[in-house]
Amino acid sequence: MSNVELLLIVVGMFLVTYGIRVTLFVGANRAEMPEWLDKALKFVPVSVLTAIIAPMALTNDNGLAVSLLNPWFVGALAALITGLVFKRQLLTISIGVVVFFLMKMVTGN
């Protein structure tokens, strides 16, 4: 690819990426959010963050990997239980990561 083409890729990608991110922010002072939308949006954090990580924790290249031999699954499960019981973020992360790496060492996966 020529340098001009690469430059156009950077510029084009920047325009759509920044456009998506900033458009609503630009009109934020004027925009009126309908009440139903406001109520729906509070479910965005849980929904999107879960949807990002669930496939990482529950699947591998071969498909579903819900197995006690899968460090990703076991680590995520440990973090989930810790989070639900103690509701302390740092503890949740630490336990999840420790369990994950222990499982990786034990299973050699």
Binding site: P45, V46, Q89, T92
Partner: peptide, 14 residues
């Protein structure tokens, strides 16, 4: 995996 654990830490309080 750090990201997975962090997101779980963020989601569980909800």
């Amino acid at each position: 995996f750090a990201m997975v654990a962090t997101f779980i830490g963020i989601v569980t309080p909800y």
